[in-house]
């Protein structure tokens, strides 16, 4: 005897899953040459689709982990991921800031205007 397993998605589950897939594709395109970022985003999207498709899963995990409701678990995960993302992006921003400063500095030095008359310094 075989059991018939019916796995159907409601319209809202389908819509949310489709949206998450769009985010996944966008992130793959967005993070060029950034394998870690891509894996991070795909991981989030995959988890999201799983939670949408099987709503009992976050509830089950939350009970196992002792964080109460499934929605609490999702909130904690999102909050942590959000903070991590801000930290990573802020670090990138600082790196760009440093590069920009160096370019502007080199340009300023290269195109400096010298005094018309050279001053001799004797102290």
């Amino acid at each position: 005897m075989t059991a018939d397993i019916q796995f159907t998605l409601t319209p809202i589950q389908l819509l949310l899953s489709a949206l998450l897939l769009v985010v996944a594709v966008a992130s793959l395109r967005l993070f060029r040459n950034r394998l870690l970022y891509r894996l991070f985003f795909i991981g989030i999207v995959f988890t999201g689709i799983l939670f949408v498709a099987v709503p009992i899963l976050p509830v089950y995990l939350a009970t196992k982990l002792g964080v109460g409701r499934g929605v609490d678990l999702v909130f904690y995960l999102l909050f942590t991921g959000f903070l991590l993302l801000i930290a990573v992006l802020y670090r990138r921003l600082l790196q760009h800031d440093t590069m920009l400063t160096q370019i502007i500095r080199q340009n300023a030095i290269k195109h400096h205007r010298s005094p018309g008359t050279v001053k001799k310094t004797e102290v």
Binding site: R105, N107, A108, H111, R113, S114, P115, G116, T117
Partner: peptide, 10 residues
């Protein structure tokens, strides 16, 4: 004025 003048673009 007899100064070296350097300018940042930003």
């Amino acid at each position: 004025l007899p100064v070296y003048y350097l300018r940042h673009d930003i």
